[in-house]
Design a protein around this nucleic acid. Structure first.
Lengths: 344, 344
DNA sequence: GTGAAAGCGCTAACAA
DNA sequence: TTGTTAGCGCTTTCAC
């Protein structure tokens, strides 16, 4: 509720001595041309009154708001802002969208949460589209994507597919391949007993990272030893517990591939605590490349997920939609890169 | 650009056999009463059509959007989402606002950045108010607050004051007192040579934390030794360098009070590297209580800033304004609490 | 207790 | 090249 009276295009028109239509033509550079002199007068009037068009009025007229929702759909809704991946995506998204005069509206939505709030957002015409970070795959994502599709709101999915069924574009990456490469890297370094500390297996990321690990071992002719499998949650404490168990094995691993950096970092902590040298006694590779991993000593070897790039690409896809150059849905992919640092 | 045709109150009215006015009365529970039977019919029609009122149309009519801007005004705009304090505030704000069916629109604005984008946001009627995290005090905040005030947009400032001049409410805390108490705590533990590793002195937080430190020493009759002052930036690497210098002193400190947790954590790293025992050889106290500080080993003693509380209180103040129970601007304060953990 | 209609600020089709 | 005006979907005053 601004205290001052709003400046409208009528005020501008009056001051510039033109009709309101011309004000619109000048502001939007069309759809009709205006004489240079008129144009200048209007611009001056706009400047003098510091006029800015009303987003609501425009939204009502054009049926678009230049606002994009960001839905972080995860088992861990508290991470919506805290997790570095969400922060990185929000940073990249916000910048890319702002450059095109679009705004971002974050909406945390936990997996399993009630969808009424989301429906209000989607059907209230508040957003021109939504960018959804999917931590999961179908069927857990079905209700969400269905709600979006039924509301007729365009969406771009990040991380997981599950977009095709609804005709949404997506930006994804391949966990399995990256996990395979990371494990292969350890094998090439000569490791034969390689443990894997898993993430929350409810999430496809955790499962795929395990599958990549397993495929690498199998291809290298190494046995997939159940004793070398630990974890099963994203909680560092669980990983630490798992690592302690691994160290008590009669034949402990010489390397550990983990499903996330935070798990890896807690494992490094355990190793240090127990006086093992890294990477001489035990090598460690994480997954994500969170900011912290660069600054620990030794710095963590990891698989880099380019979250900023994911955000950027998602923003581009979304802008293409809101600006009408939509075409067929596009499924983009980004490559994950192994970053060997101090722990391998 | 939703692909489906929008359902409007006309559709609802038609289906329920009433006028559009009644639909509005039912939705808004006023301003006029409706017969129970009519009301029920309308509700059923709304349900059947899954009708949701258009935010733009409402916004245009009511001149309010139920959207609140969050401006993070800092020398470090990249932190807008990454810094745990911003994440914590955004989390708390979003939850509190969503509960009242308000949305949050984050807008990163670096100190010194051009204000045109912000002006567009403020004057476009896109937000009913803004919540501003001020990392600084006047005169650096003047241009920003002035722009907000001139746009006639209500604001609530978090962390720093500088709000009074413009009639804004604020939620702040006292760095100086907290720093005083933290330093006093070290003194009471028997420390006599207490170093201070400073933050970026362009920011009032860094300066106040230093002042509190100094006051404690002075009151305890201890000299404020220039040799024991290090740092001057928020970069952990600078703190590490400072700590190494402190350790080379002929009479090194037995305790260090730092201006932030990240600085403290890097100092802990240096101490560990050099084989000093914590807290026996050197005690460390940080400031902020970032999530990481709870999980390191040993856990960091620190001053807790209740960012979630700051966010919550700011949201409440803002809602009071948008809902019309404004009254005089309110200057709330939250207490900072010393959290002794493993490093003291 | 309800209906008709004005008007919020804008864009764009229709006129000139 | 520009002016006039309908209408986007909603709330609320005026009339009944």
């Amino acid at each position: 509720m601004p205290t001052k009276k709003r400046v409208t295009h009528r005020d501008v028109a009056r001051l510039a001595g033109v009709s309101t239509a011309v004000v619109s033509y000048v502001i939007n550079d069309g759809p009709r041309a205006t004489a240079a002199a008129t144009r200048r007068r209007v611009l001056e009037a706009i400047e003098a009154l510091s006029y800015h068009p009303s987003a609501s009025a425009r939204g009502l007229r054009l049926q678009q708001t230049r606002t994009i929702g960001f839905i972080s759909f995860d088992h861990y809704p508290h991470d919506a802002f805290f997790a570095p991946w969400n922060a990185a995506m929000l940073t990249a998204l916000t910048e890319a969208l702002l450059r095109e005069h679009h705004y971002i509206l974050p909406y945390p939505q936990g997996i399993g949460d009630d969808l009424t709030g989301l429906n209000e957002l989607l059907r209230g015409g508040r957003v021109d589209g939504v960018i959804v970070r999917l931590a999961q795959e179908p069927p857990l994502t079905d209700a969400l994507l269905e709600a979006i599709a039924r509301a007729g709101v365009p969406a771009v999915c990040i991380e997981r597919a599950g977009a095709e069924r609804f005709g949404f574009s997506s930006v994804t990456y391949d966990d399995e391949v990256a996990a395979y490469e990371a494990t292969m890297h350890l094998i090439k370094l000569g490791h034969r007993r390689i443990a894997h500390v898993q993430g929350d297996l409810r999430q496809v990321a955790a499962r795929d990272r395990f599958l990549g690990y397993r495929r690498a071992l199998t291809e290298a002719g190494l046995a997939v030893d159940g004793d070398l499998l630990q974890g099963g949650s994203w909680l560092p404490a669980d990983a630490a517990r798992g690592m302690r168990q691994l160290l008590e094995l009669s034949a402990p691993p010489s390397a550990v591939f983990t499903a996330s950096d935070y798990l890896a970092l807690s494992i490094v902590e355990v190793l240090r605590e127990q006086g093992r040298r890294i990477p001489d006694d035990v090598a460690v590779i994480g997954f994500d490349d969170v900011p912290l991993s660069r600054v620990t000593v030794p710095a963590l070897s990891t698989v880099r997920i380019p979250f900023d790039d994911l955000g950027l690409k998602a923003a581009d896809l979304m802008l293409r939609i809101t600006q009408g150059h939509a075409g067929e849905p596009i499924a983009e992919t980004v490559r994950l890169e192994l970053i060997p640092r101090g722990t391998t």
